[in-house]
């Protein structure tokens, strides 16, 4: 048997890894400052980012076990369309339709969980269901959005509670709940054990399968809930809603420092990751006006919105590599 050895990385690396998200936040704030963006303008983007953040909370729990859920964006679309269709065509009261939407999200998540428990890699399962649920949302909608939802329902997505948008309140609640579950319950303890060493967790009588089923179910429920808030905010059920949200949510989790391979990370990190990514994205959205003149160069270098994807992609990889290194390598 080949010996597994852990090479403990130097302390400064662990330090710098913890520091990385804060530096990026500083960068984002500096950019916003340079562009003279008003806090009020930044706040306008917050509801949308809070929705993504809520997805990221559930995703963190899954990624702690070394799994992944790529289908959350598609589940959002499916749940949103369920809500719209039940209200318009089946004449359900909007509240009942909303509950049904959340449950449909849960069902979709449960299907993911069942397939994962059968022994398929979560990546493959959710890649497939991502296409399937998105296709289902498009098919049941016939490609059209359903607008004209009751005004008092739409208030749910646009209102403020004590000056805070409802989505941000939802994110806050999700972070709190996630933090308690992940860091202060038996369930949470099991997540880390599975992510660290799945075999050893099984040998320690951890109910790995039941746990995974619950995780993907929860992820689906959260996606359904987010869909309700999103639908309320936009005032319409949109069949292509949620596209690309899964990637944003994954980026939040990875930027925060949770390892893709599982076993290390947490909700607090993801909270930071959400704030960092949101502000970076917002800053880059305003970046069209930003010109930076590099020393020794005549023409200013202009940061455009198109650079956004490049910067985010490279940041994602750089941070992921840095975190992996900081946690030591197994040779």
């Amino acid at each position: 048997m080949a010996q597994v050895r852990t090479i403990t990385p130097p302390r400064w690396r662990q330090w710098s890894a913890a520091l990385a998200p804060w530096l990026m936040l500083l960068l984002a704030l500096a950019l916003l400052n340079a562009e003279e963006v008003k806090p009020r303008a930044v706040m306008r983007f917050w509801p949308a980012w809070a929705e993504t953040g809520t997805l990221a909370v559930a995703l963190t729990a899954i990624m702690l076990t070394g799994g992944i859920d790529l289908s959350i964006g598609s589940i959002m679309a499916l749940a949103g369309m369920t809500l719209g269709l039940l209200w318009r065509d089946a004449h359900w009261p909007i509240a009942a339709a909303a509950v049904a939407a959340v449950l449909v999200g849960g069902l979709a998540g449960a299907i993911n969980g069942a397939l994962v428990v059968l022994g398929l890699p979560s990546l493959v399962v959710t890649l497939a269901t991502m296409a399937f649920y998105a296709g289902l949302a498009l098919a049941i909608s016939g490609g059209e959005r359903i607008s004209g939802l009751p005004a008092d329902f739409c208030e749910l997505g646009r209102e403020r509670i004590a000056g805070v948008p409802t989505q941000v309140c939802l994110l806050g609640a999700a972070l709190m709940a996630g933090w308690i579950v992940v860091h202060h319950t038996r369930f949470g303890r099991y997540l880390f054990a599975i992510g660290d060493n799945r075999t050893a967790a099984t040998f320690a009588a951890v109910p790995v399968r039941r746990l995974e089923l619950a995780l993907y179910l929860a992820s689906g429920l959260v996606a359904g809930l987010v869909a309700v808030f999103y639908t309320a905010r936009t005032g319409a059920a949109i069949p292509t809603a949620g596209q690309g949200r899964e990637l944003e949510a994954i980026t939040c989790v990875v930027l925060g420092g949770t390892l893709v391979t599982g076993g290390f990370g947490g909700i607090g990190r993801t909270a930071l990751g959400i704030v960092v990514l949101a502000h970076l994205e917002i800053a880059l959205q305003f970046a069209d006006q930003l010109k930076i003149t590099l020393p020794g160069s005549d023409s200013p270098w202009q940061l455009t919105g198109q650079t956004r994807l490049i910067i985010l992609g490279m940041l994602l990889i750089a941070v992921a590599i840095w975190n992996q290194r900081a946690r030591g390598t197994r040779a």
Partner: peptide, 23 residues
């Protein structure tokens, strides 16, 4: 080199290539 899962790398690089494309 980064000992990363290819899905993370190609996810990030997908953004980079798309960004380059629109640039």
């Amino acid at each position: 080199v980064g000992r990363l899962h290819p899905i993370v790398v190609t996810l990030g690089m997908m953004g980079v290539y798309r960004g380059l494309l629109s640039l």
